[in-house]
Design a protein around this nucleic acid. Structure first.
Lengths: 184, 184
DNA sequence: GTCAGTTCTGACCGATCGGTCAGTTAGTCT
DNA sequence: AGACTAACTGACCGATCGGTCAGAACTGAC
């Protein structure tokens, strides 16, 4: 694996666990067995390293969100969106953990601002898809809860295997929470 | 309001929004209209300020957890616990936001370590109260999702009023998610 | 060998970090 | 008035931060 890719991997892990401001370039260099100068050779700045690290995940989330806005929450697409969303969470746990937890504190970083906007759009979309405050909350718990649990399960004592059972269970639960209310 | 209390308020808000490592003593001093030296007069160190800021919330969570471990998940107590838990989330949104998002990165700070242990105990308690992985996930989404949503709703476009309706809706949803499965 | 280009490094820079300390200000009691 | 105390401050410290730069080390092509 090239130094470039290795640096991104170590940076992502550190950014997610220790936080962006809590991670020094020196620390990333040590993890990769390089000098601080080498890190700044591959990436022009700490911010550029962050961008390269979480950019692709944000692209993917943006694409997901764009399709959702086009196709809406039609019953046949709803499940497809859920599957894609859950797969995204599984594939990009660390990235999601980053801009979910540190998004607000890194507003001035362009790439994070992009993530914040997308997450905000997602929240608005589901929030405006129902008039009932009770359902707004259900949606919030479904989206936020699944994302949060997937990203932090590693830190807790509850291991979370990324197998097919976990995936389908998560989709089922989210589907229940996102189901339209019968009455209220 | 005394300087001591004001400093705690500003520190909590900054720690929660910008992160502990991302918040300088200088910044807190500016918010309170004092000098950096004054902050360190009231609190012997940055860590002591953090401890004074989130300590009481952790005490409350520990007490909640202790009672849960004694009384177990008996049907009559379950709802009472839920109410107390939700009230705790409402009252201590910023504190919870802190040690939920930054807990792992501040393991070396004693007061945060205490919070991490309590959160871990809570996760273990609910995780071990069922044998079904599907239900473990439901519990995780219920606890993590509600906590996460309450703490970050402010950052998103979805305002969340802390009224009685919100409270009871949240309890209802959590109750559904924590209900024992019928079959699987 | 030699040369060009990529990768990497140590030395250094200004800024900021958390923290110490001597000393000033202001109120309170006798 | 003087004495004592709590609140506050500016100057300063060593360490670390992100970042710059000149050059060393390694690489394959010829």
């Amino acid at each position: 694996m090239s130094s470039h890719e290795e640096l991104q991997r170590f940076a992502l892990a550190e950014f997610a666990s220790a936080g962006y401001t809590g991670t020094s370039i020196q620390r990333i260099a040590e993890l990769a067995g390089l000098s601080k100068s080498s890190v700044l050779y591959h990436f022009t700045s700490k911010e550029a390293l962050l961008e390269a690290t979480v950019g692709p995940a944000i692209d993917r989330l943006e694409a997901l969100m764009a399709e959702l806005e086009v196709r809406g929450l039609s019953p046949d697409y709803r499940n497809q969106f859920l599957e894609q969303f859950v797969d995204f969470l599984f594939d990009c746990r660390q990235e999601v953990h980053m801009f979910i937890n540190q998004g607000p504190s890194l507003q001035d970083v362009p790439v994070i601002e992009r993530a914040n906007n997308t997450v905000r759009n997602l929240a608005e979309f589901f929030s405006s898809s129902t008039a009932h405050p009770h359902d707004k909350m259900r949606f919030g718990i479904a989206l936020g809860g699944s994302a949060y649990m997937l990203c932090t399960a590693d830190n807790l004592a509850v291991p979370l295997e990324a197998n097919q059972d976990t995936r389908s269970a998560l989709i089922t639960i989210m589907s229940e929470l996102l189901a339209p209310v019968r009455s209220s």
